[in-house]
Design a protein around this nucleic acid. Structure first.
Lengths: 379, 379
DNA sequence: CTGTTAGCGCTTTCAT
DNA sequence: ATGAAAGCGCTAACAG
């Protein structure tokens, strides 16, 4: 009786199963661990014993000797954000299909948190790491290099990191933004706002300084700004830094930033937002100014959502393939784990332009007084 | 040289640090693991040696001997769903504050997947489990009982599971739904739809059978239906099963289900939806029928989202405290890990009724012809 | 095909 | 306060 009691609390081990089956420990281990060769007879006995005792393998012990944990670490800014949640789901799906398991950590876009997270995951011996890094410059990548030096494959997701030659799965940010802005331009818009570059302390007075500053933004933001500028340049439209928001990354701040733009003497007639909350903020500012989209102002935003189709009129959006991004990242990780040591590959998954009804032709009513001129002598 | 090479590939161990520091293995282990007592002198030498060698603890080995992994397993239907993503974020935050780590798995609401997930997490020796279970009946809980029998604390989140006496963190589903329906009733509505009960094979012809069937729904759905019925009963409004949707849980199906309701001779004048996608589907159906909210039909939905404030007119919603749910669940888990073996506690976190503008008084234009009567002889 | 024997890196008695 | 030695549950060599 006492013996039985103690048995129920701690799981039986391979040795106990072996004893019960009347075979050696190794034979039991081989059948239970599905490796090596075991005679059908012995195998059956072991299985029966295991069943009877309620044997469950101890993954920890197994990982300890094999050095593989069947676990990958995932580090993103915020699991609660729909974008990363989607990515996470893609990763989780890929993991389930391969019997991997995912540990997630949120960094809130803080480098220190990210560094700590990488440390924890290294110590937990994850087989690979997928990171949407907050690192902006090569000198902020020590933690990632540390992981690499410990032979842990790292794949970047959503953002490349300058100075790191690693697998990365991203979308075509630059082209997506460029296409959206081209769309605006085709409909006659010339005052086009770019909402939600990163929070910047000071204003960026001119093109040169804006572009220089952009080199230190999150890669994806930089790319989107580049696409915006590309389209403007193609059309010979001067870049007005006042139309590039540098407010905090939250809905409230965006309401303010867009509100300010709308109060300018020559306000934007079109707005490109780079994230869901930015779109919500922009829409609120537009309403607050007594305007309606797309009648008074056209809008396009990154990150489609089911809501976008239900807003009236429905919103034209740039849908990011979040699940795909996650799945692809996981697959790269698996390939590296499997020993692939080829050159780093950048996988660019295209976004989808979901055309709905939030872009309209520029009204030809003369909205500008003569004195409300753009910064440079535009053509 | 060769010695150095091999050192860089595999991390140094406690023994190596001890050797470098010129102390015994145990002393090194004690300082590195922060336990026991070590003289300041020895401590300093060990730390220096560790630093020099770039020592990192092997969590696996530690967990193996201590039996604690500082890891909790989280099982939800879909990490990509905004609700669970929010919950996940709450859990992640709580984990970060306590140096725990979270493994997430999505089940897609499939019991078999959930069972497998629990198995994996047990094998990985998680210190606790947080589950939004898909189990509906006591006979579907074997996997959870298994975890419990292995002394792994389990806390349920979002849904209680019938027959399981476990800690659970949930919202006040019944009251929330009841209050929403009361709201409708106060404004004069009597034909009120409940959208997105679970997918059911056959129609539920009468009240008795509907309520009986509801006993086998996900607990949260059952509760919400109860709240709906409560409010109807209070007001003496007969329950019409045709106004309770039993379509598949996706936006598209909801469009169809609500569309059908709107085509009835005495269509609903108010709709309560129990999830984000249901609201989006309902709104689409409403539009498709050429109606507008709240002029023609009032709506309230579970799960607030920033979008709801930007829909025109903005939507009245029942906001679930997702972060809070996650945080609370994690805290219960930690308490159990710490040894709390008190009775199971149910923590009910109230939802917030976000009143906006999607509810309007019932138009008193006579919408019903004499023959379009409600099912029973209502008062 | 099978059993015996060593560890994996750490914590934990138990002496000293 | 410290060191020696045992052992966690498993896999991996190595004999038979």
């Amino acid at each position: 009786m006492p013996g039985q009691r103690s048995r129920s609390v701690s799981s039986p081990t391979v040795a106990e199963v072996a004893a019960e089956a009347g075979v050696g420990k190794a034979t039991a281990a081989r059948t239970l661990g599905n490796y090596g060769a075991v005679s059908p007879a012995a195998r059956a006995r072991v299985l029966a014993a295991a069943e009877k005792l309620g044997y469950r393998p101890n993954s920890l012990a197994r990982s300890m000797t094999t050095g593989i944990t069947q676990t990958i670490g995932v580090i993103v800014a915020d699991v609660g954000n729909p974008f990363f949640a989607g990515v996470m789901r893609g990763i989780a799906d890929a993991c389930e299909a391969t019997d991997y398991t995912a540990i997630v950590m949120s960094t809130d876009e803080k480098l220190a948190t990210e560094q700590a997270a990488v440390g924890v995951l290294i110590d937990k011996q994850v087989d690979a790491l997928i990171i949407a890094s907050a690192a902006l410059r090569p000198n902020e990548t020590a933690h990632i290099l540390e992981a690499m030096s410990r032979r842990i494959p790292v794949v970047l997701i959503d953002r490349k990191v300058r100075g790191l030659d690693l697998d990365a799965v991203v979308i075509n940010n630059r082209e997506s933004a460029r296409d959206a802005v081209r769309q605006f331009i085709e409909w006659g818009h010339r005052r086009i706002a770019f909402v939600w570059g990163p929070a910047l302390p000071d204003a960026l007075p001119d093109r040169r300084r804006l572009l220089a500053s952009a080199e230190n933004w999150l890669w994806s933001e930089t790319e989107r700004l580049r696409g915006y500028v590309d389209a403007l340049d193609e059309a010979g439209i001067p870049l007005d830094p006042a139309l590039v928001s540098t407010c905090a990354h939250n809905e409230e701040a965006t309401v303010g930033a867009v509100g300010d733009m709308l109060a300018m003497p020559d306000p934007p007639t079109a707005v490109l937002t780079t994230e869901t909350d930015a779109m919500v903020g922009a829409l609120r500012a537009i309403r607050a100014a007594g305007l309606r989209h797309p009648r008074d102002i056209s809008v396009i935003g990154f990150d489609d959502s089911s809501w976008a189709s239900v807003i009236e009129p429905p919103l034209t959006m740039i849908a990011q393939p979040m699940l795909e991004l996650g799945r692809a990242a996981a697959q790269h990780a698996f390939a590296r784990i499997a020993g692939d040591d080829g050159d780093a590959v950048i996988e660019t998954i295209p976004s989808t332009f979901v055309s709905r009804a939030s872009v309209a032709p520029l009204k030809s009513v003369a909205p500008l007084k003569e004195d409300a001129v753009s910064a440079d002598g535009a053509r």
